[in-house]
Design a protein around this nucleic acid. Structure first.
Length: 567
RNA sequence: GCGCGUGUAGCUCAGAUGGAUAGAGCGGCGGCCUCCGAAGCCGUAGGCCACAGGUUCGAAUCCUGUCACGCGCACCA
């Protein structure tokens, strides 16, 4: 249990006791007590404004409530002092021993420190990336991939059972377009085409090697496939799809992103799930047919702006029909929550999907969408276009080549998902502390080197039962308190679907450490002649390294033991 | 036109459930190495939190309206 959660419980219990005494109405107690870590140290280790909030319901003066609450908290486990401040804040200060004990226990937990059971093992499906298999991944996909991946890590840490899924849109016009494009490139390779790429084909040069491979695998005959030769078209289409999906997988692997399941849209068609879902929607009375024979889902009954076509005039289901089936499938698989990570350009699609889930009788609260706004690549303030001659998309691969995995991942989660922001290539490329990812990694390396140096001199952090009371400097206590927030950061970031919390937290924590280090490196070094101080400080360093390392692990960014750069 | 998102320091952005004197990084300016990593640190300047109303003990945060920017408004996926 984190220190903060401990305090939350103390306050909660105290309030319940007050309620039993009749000082407040029982039903006025909120499920979660607002407890914050004050910005100002004078306000204690923790502060709550609960008395201000309960005052009205209790028909009491907030300070009067605060007085009653503080009387209950006085002497509670770990509490050093309580004070009432301002209009009725209650500030809680804990004993130093409480903090030292927490540090010792965190250091023991090591790579598991920060994990909790808060999610109670509830099952969550996170679907992310889901780029169409018609070309390479671009930068926008990369952001969604990293955000989805880090969110999944956070949920896992917070005690949820997480599955990561990729939805392959391997059906529809785009696949036909892809097929046409590959066939065109194949003819081009054989000299049968010399003109520009037709309008109804993808222009990207990345399809030339695909066509070459297709020729090698399927023979030169593919240059002569007739538009109505379905079996041949299917062979080409499947080949191109597999090839492009393979490239996407390769890019994701390089980015450190892995999905447990790759869900293919066509399986929904093959199994009849699409028509089944449409039929069920119809059976429930939410579908009507118009004069031309189109079938419409009356999504307006569930909050959508307009009704949506589910089956076209020619009997072919729309993409949306498949998506209804897909989300129904997710619901039927029994997840407590299904989170879709989408690009912001798809936001208009949310109401209809939500409507379909509601219309099929599921609780819409089980469906969530995390939107990712676009990233603008800039270099020294100037917008960048990364695509080579091949086209105007900016590929993820180019970015990875340019700045590496760590800076790419860190850069994509350092801002809130629903804010557009500028990704500065020059900054991400620079191997300096101006680069936030290096700043954090450098801190980890510095801690590692201190511990290594200590080991060299024969000091190891005491593994158990160490007396940490040699830790007395205010900066050291501040570091402990900050480091002990890590489990709360994980929970908050998971609950709020806000991976960027982790980045900000790590920057703050390591910033405190750099300050501490510089201030005392001449006077109060970690490794000194004082055995008690040395031992205690090594535990502190070990604990900090653990937290930074765990944070970087959640982000999927490497945590180097050393970072010497040549020159 | 309608919907969603955004508007906070010169720049890029944080500010969870409304709370105490609005934060960080970069950039400016001024300082700190007889060093466990100066690739670091400290100090300082810089704000009508887009604008106008409202809600209440209290609003950057919630509500309404206005303006600006981005995205979307398919029988494409």
């Amino acid at each position: 249990m984190s220190v903060k959660v401990h305090v939350e419980r103390l306050i909660h219990d105290a309030l319940r006791a007050l309620a039993q005494q009749g000082l407040l109405p029982e039903d006025a107690l909120p499920a979660t007590i607002p407890v914050e870590t004050p910005k100002r140290a004078e306000h204690g280790d923790f502060a709550t404004s609960i008395c201000l909030q309960l005052a009205k319901a209790a028909r009491k003066n907030p300070r009067e409530l605060a007085t009653a609450l503080s009387a209950k908290l006085e002497g509670a486990e770990g509490v050093a002092s309580i004070e009432i401040a301002g209009p009725g804040f209650v500030n809680v200060r804990l004993t130093i021993d409480t903090w030292l004990t927490a540090l010792a226990s965190a250091t023991r937990e090591g790579a598991r420190f920060g994990r909790s059971q808060a999610g109670l093992g509830r099952r969550v499906l996170v679907e992310y990336v889901s780029a169409n298999p018609t070309g390479p991944m671009h930068v926008g996909h990369g952001r969604g991939a990293v955000i989805g991946d880090v969110l999944s890590n956070l949920l896992d840490w917070a005690g949820y059972r997480v599955e990561r899924e990729y939805y392959e849109n391997d059906v529809g016009n785009q696949m036909n377009k892809l097929t046409r494009s590959v066939l065109f490139r194949a003819r081009e390779l054989l000299g049968l085409e010399t003109g520009p790429v037709p309008e109804d084909c993808y222009p990207g040069a990345y399809l030339i090697p695909v066509a070459e491979a297709a020729r090698a695998a399927l023979g030169d005959g593919i240059a002569h496939v007739a538009p109505e030769d379905e079996p041949a078209l299917t062979r080409v289409r499947d080949f191109a799809r597999d090839r492009l999906v393979g490239e996407i997988r390769g890019d994701l692997e390089r980015l450190g992103v892995r999905h447990e399941t790759w869900f293919r849209e066509h399986t929904l068609h093959d199994s009849g799930a699409v028509s089944q879902a449409a039929a069920e929607l119809e059976a429930r009375g939410h579908v009507y047919t118009d004069d031309s024979g189109k079938r419409w889902f009356r999504s307006t009954d569930f909050g959508d702006d307009e009704d949506r076509v589910v089956v076209r005039e020619n009997g072919v289901p729309t993409y949306f029909a498949a998506d209804i089936a897909y989300h129904k499938h997710k619901m039927d698989r029994g997840y407590d929550c299904a989170i879709d990570v989408w690009g912001a350009d798809h936001h208009g699609y949310i109401p209809r999907v939500r409507a379909s889930i509601a219309a099929l009788g599921y609780d819409v609260k089980r469906f969530e969408v995390l939107l990712c706004q676009f990233v603008t690549l800039v270099e020294n303030g100037q917008p960048v276009r990364m695509g080579k001659r091949s086209g105007n998309f900016e590929t993820l691969r180019d970015l990875l080549d340019e700045v590496g995995v760590d800076a790419t991942r860190f850069g994509f989660v350092m801002r809130s998902a629903d804010a557009q922001f500028e990704f500065d290539l020059a900054l991400a490329k620079s191997q300096s502390m101006e680069n936030p990812v290096y700043y954090v990694q450098y801190g980890h390396a510095r801690l590692a080197q201190i511990l290594a140096k200590a080991a060299e001199l024969g000091h190891a952090p005491p593994s158990d039962g160490a007396d940490l009371r040699a830790i007395v400097l205010p900066e050291e206590l501040g570091l402990i308190k900050k480091a002990m927030e890590w489990p709360d950061v994980v929970r908050a970031a998971a609950d709020q679907r806000a991976p960027h919390f982790v980045v900000f937290y790590l920057q703050e924590l390591i910033g405190l450490f750099h300050g501490y280090y510089t201030k005392y490196k001449a006077t109060e070094k970690v490794v000194s002649d004082d055995a008690a101080k040395t031992a205690a400080r090594l535990v502190l360093c070990q604990g900090l390294k653990t937290v930074i390392g765990n944070g970087l692990a959640v982000l999927g960014v490497s945590a180097p033991e050393r970072m010497y750069f040549t020159e």
